[in-house]
Design a protein around this nucleic acid. Structure first.
Lengths: 259, 259
DNA sequence: AGATTTAGTTTCATTATTTGAAACCTGAAG
DNA sequence: CTTCAGGTTTCAAATAATGAAACTAAATCT
């Protein structure tokens, strides 16, 4: 019995089903879900019914599949507006993008993972799906490491322990000791790098956003490809990045954003 | 037994609480929720606890408030990727934006309302919060009317009836008969206009996205301000808009997107 | 300081909901 | 016409949710 999933009654089970549907990444038939569901047939069926009635799932009569419903997007929009750093940070990020001409990401830490809450693209070249709500592991992304480095010890422990370390690329750090070393360095410099650790060809420079009480409330990064910049080249963005992160931190404090 | 709100057990109650928190539009204290909650103190309290355990809500120790949680954004991202028209439509919309140099919205109809699922801005700046997940009434927006006009009669009835008609601006049509007239015209022309009916100073031209079987699966609009274009000026976008809507419809059919 | 109010939390017997094995549909394949 | 697979419903038993009331902690009043 891990601390991970506390079952939490009916609501817990229902949300578990939602996660299942989400995992499939495509509309799913009842049987598809059934094989993954820990519950017997009748129970799974009724949970799906309930969620569909509640518009958390949508049922497609045509092919008998379930997919995630519109109510989720409405709620998430509300979440984004009221509970994320994004609305507060937007104006500053816009300035930064205009300034450096690169794509900027804003992330927060959520359940030990990186949760992207905003993304502004330079002008706008090709790509990309709305990054908002996307998650990534903390230990191998610039924003993730920037936040880990400034996390309070207990929260850090928690985030580090509950993580499975997967080697996404040859450069991914999967060794806890090395990771801790790097976090220490980041704590000193206030800057984190992603050296193709999550995706080959993608590098980034990131800075934590700290509220006035010193707690990490997010992180900011400039991400680019190795074809556009070298790792050293990223240092040009160091100053504006830090400056913007600081401004956002000050503003967030002013708005009493939860630490 | 109204069709409106079927309570649907514990899960329904929990989601009702989520909606409550969302409505406040700010972090809320337990007592704030209590006055709006239909449930007694202990029940409301436990529902919030459950949702917090499940990361659907987040509790801020600092000031004792609840706000919508990260899990919602994760799920919504999955919903956006798998259950919305947006990923399919993206490339076409990008082309359209590049073509006309205006901001383009993509919307779907959800529970009789307009649900924005994507927004691409013309190159430029100012404004705006991630529109994804934002909702608006159908009867007074371009995209909304475009979809209503092509909705199957029964679904239209439903959407029209369950709507409260609020006069957002002097131009808002709140009279069902006039609205029906306009929908007929839209059916013929395949183009809908928003003549400052939802927001003063904002006009738009919209076209429905139809799947091959003739069902509306979404709508596309070009929105602008009265200071940039006149209503007649919008007609310049008519052809590219229709063309793009058609391409998206064809592609969606190909992907068996639910009608 | 002591009394009083307010906000949040817990208890526990009662009540209502959820559960799941099994039976039952229904349309498609053999 | 049988069999089968996917989906749906039933109903007594098991479980989880309920809520009045009691309790705690902190703030506010006297």
């Amino acid at each position: 019995m891990t601390a991970a999933t506390k079952s939490d009654g009916t609501v817990g089970k229902a949300l578990e089903m939602l996660d299942l549907v989400a995992e499939f990444g495509r509309p799913v038939r009842f049987t598809d879900i059934l094989v993954k569901s820990p519950h017997p047939k009748a129970t799974s069926y009724r949970l799906l019914q309930t969620l569909t009635n509640q518009h958390m799932l949508e049922f497609n009569d045509g092919n008998g599949t379930y997919s995630l419903g519109g109510r989720l997007m409405r709620l998430a929009h509300a979440a984004w507006k009221t509970a994320s750093l994004a609305p507060i940070a937007r104006p500053f990020i816009e300035t930064l993008v205009a300034d450096v001409g690169e794509t900027v990401h804003l992330a927060q830490i959520d359940q030990g993972q990186v949760l992207f809450v905003d993304k502004l693209q330079a002008t706008d070249r090709f790509e990309t799906l709305a990054q908002v709500g996307k998650i990534a592991p903390a230990y191998c992304t610039g924003v993730g490491k920037a936040m880990l480095a400034f996390l309070a010890p207990k929260r850090l422990q928690l985030a580090m322990l509950q993580q499975a370390y997967f080697k996404y690329t040859p450069a991914t750090i999967t060794d806890v000791a090395s990771l801790e070393d790097e976090l220490e360095q980041i704590q000193v410099s206030g800057i984190a790098y992603d050296r193709e650790e999550h995706e080959e060809g993608i590098i980034s420079i990131a800075a934590p956003v700290l509220s006035s009480n010193g707690r990490v409330i997010g992180a900011l990064s400039i991400a680019t490809s190795t074809t556009r910049h070298t790792l050293e080249g990223l240092d040009a963005f160091r100053a504006p990045l830090l400056e913007t992160a600081e401004k956002i931190g000050a503003e967030a404090t002013h708005w009493q954003f939860p630490a």
